[in-house]
Simulated assay, not measured.
Amino acid sequence: MERSDASESPLAAAPGATGPASEAFELLSNETRLAILVALWDAYDPFDGENAVRFSDLRDAVGVTDSGQFNYHLEKLTGHFVESTDQGYELREPGRKFVRAVVAGAGIEEPTLEPTEIDMECSLCGGAVEVGYEDGWVYNACTECDGLFAGEDTPRGHLSKFKLDPAGFTGRSPAEIYSAAWVRAFQRLYAMIEGICPSCSGPVERSLERCETHDDEGICDDCDRGAAVTAQFECPVCKEWAVTTLGGVAKYHPAAVAFHYERGLPLQYGFNDLASINERLETGHTDWNVVSEDPLRVRVTLGFDGDELDIELAEDLSVVDVSDPR
C-alpha cells in the first residue's frame, strides 16, 4: 500500500482545509462555545428551511447574561461551525457533524455488553457463538474453537468485529446490536471499496496484504489471522481503516450480487436481522488462491448450491476478471 508523506499531518493536509486542525480543537475547548452549538442543534430541523436563531434568543438559551462576552464566543465559531445570516445564526455542516458525533456517543459513557450467546453457529466448527462489546467494537466469538483472528487484546475464538457507536445500542437486544453493527460495517466497507472514506469523505488507499510467514494451521502467530491474504483500506486524511476478507470485497461486485440474487439470496438488501445474516453465512462458501505473486493477484471463488463464480482481484482490490468456471 502506498502511503502519504508522513512528515505532514494528515489532518493539516486534508483537501480544502482552511487551517491547522489544532485551531478547530481550540475553538471547541470552551464550555460556552459548546453550549452555543448545542442550542443551535436543539433549534435545528432538517426539514425546515428556517433554522436561524436570533442573537438574543440564542444568548438566552445558552444562559450568558454578558452580551459582549457571549458575542465574543459566538464570533469565534462563526465562519466554520456557525453561519451568520440576516435572520440570525444557525449551524453549518461542520457544526452539525460535530454535534452528531456527540449524540452518537463520542465523549459519553460507553454501554456495556457482556458476552451473550445468540442464535448463531460458528462457521468453522458449528459451536455456540457469543456476542459482546468492547472499546467501541461489537464482536462475535466461538465458545469452542480458536476463531478467525487473535491478538493481544482479542480473546480466543473471535470470528468478526465491527465498529458501532453507543447510540446503536438504543432499544436493541444483543442479537439486534450485532445485526446493526453488521449492516453498519458493510455500508462503510462499500464506501471504502469505492475509494471514499465513510468518516471524512477523503480518498481511500486499497490493497491486498499478504503475510509472508503465514502459518496455515489455525491462527498465524505473526499476523494473528486465519487467512494469509486480506483486503485492507486506509484513509490518509483521518486515518480511518478497515480489514476484511477477500470474499467481502468480491461479493460487492455486481456479478456476485446477481449470482447470489438469482439463487434466492440478496447480498445488499434485507440483511438487518440475525436470521438473514445466518442465511448469508450458511448458504454460500468462499475460497481463494493466489494467481500471481508480482504483482499480487488473487482469484476468489464464490459457491452457492453447487454453482461457482470466480472473481479476480488485483493488488489495489480492483476486479480484473469475472468468470463462471463451469
Rank of each mutant, 00 (worst) to 15 (best):
E2A: 14
R3K: 13
D5S: 12
D5H: 11
S7I: 10
S9F: 10
P10C: 09
P15S: 11
P15F: 09
A17S: 14
A17W: 03
G19N: 06
A21V: 13
F25L: 13
E26H: 11
L27A: 10
A35S: 11
A39L: 04
D42S: 13
A43T: 01
D48M: 05
G49E: 14
V53E: 06
L58I: 04
D60K: 10
G63V: 00
T65I: 09
D66I: 04
S67E: 14
Q69L: 14
F70D: 00
N71L: 12
L74T: 04
K76M: 15
G79E: 02
G79K: 03
T85S: 03
E93D: 15
R100N: 13
V102R: 08
A104E: 15
G105H: 00
G107P: 00
E110I: 08
P111N: 07
T112R: 11
E114Q: 09
E114H: 07
P115L: 00
C122W: 00
L124F: 11
C125T: 00
G126H: 03
G127M: 02
V129H: 01
V131W: 01
D135C: 07
G136Q: 05
G136E: 05
W137K: 05
Y139F: 10
Y139T: 06
N140D: 12
A141C: 05
E144Q: 08
D146K: 05
G147I: 04
G147L: 07
L148Q: 08
E152L: 09
D153N: 09
P155R: 03
R156S: 12
H158D: 12
K163S: 15
P166K: 05
A167E: 14
A167L: 14
A167V: 10
G168M: 05
S173N: 04
A175Y: 05
E176Q: 11
A180N: 04
W182L: 08
Q187S: 09
I196M: 09
C197F: 06
C197E: 03
P198I: 02
S199T: 14
C200T: 01
G202I: 02
V204L: 02
R206H: 01
S207Q: 08
S207D: 14
E209S: 12
H214R: 05
D215G: 10
D215N: 13
D216Q: 10
E217K: 07
I219A: 08
D222C: 10
R225H: 12
V229R: 01
V229I: 09
F233W: 06
P236I: 12
P236R: 04
V237H: 06
V237L: 02
A242E: 14
V243G: 11
T244E: 15
T244K: 03
T244I: 05
G248E: 14
A250Q: 02
H253K: 02
Q268M: 15
N272D: 15
L274V: 08
L274M: 07
L274H: 02
A275V: 13
S276I: 10
S276W: 09
N278Q: 10
R280Y: 15
L281K: 04
E282A: 12
T283C: 06
G284E: 06
G284F: 04
T286A: 13
W288S: 12
W288L: 04
W288Q: 09
E293F: 08
P295R: 06
V298K: 00
V300E: 02
V300N: 01
V300I: 03
T301G: 07
L302H: 00
G303H: 05
L309R: 00
D316R: 01
S318T: 15
P325D: 05
R326A: 15
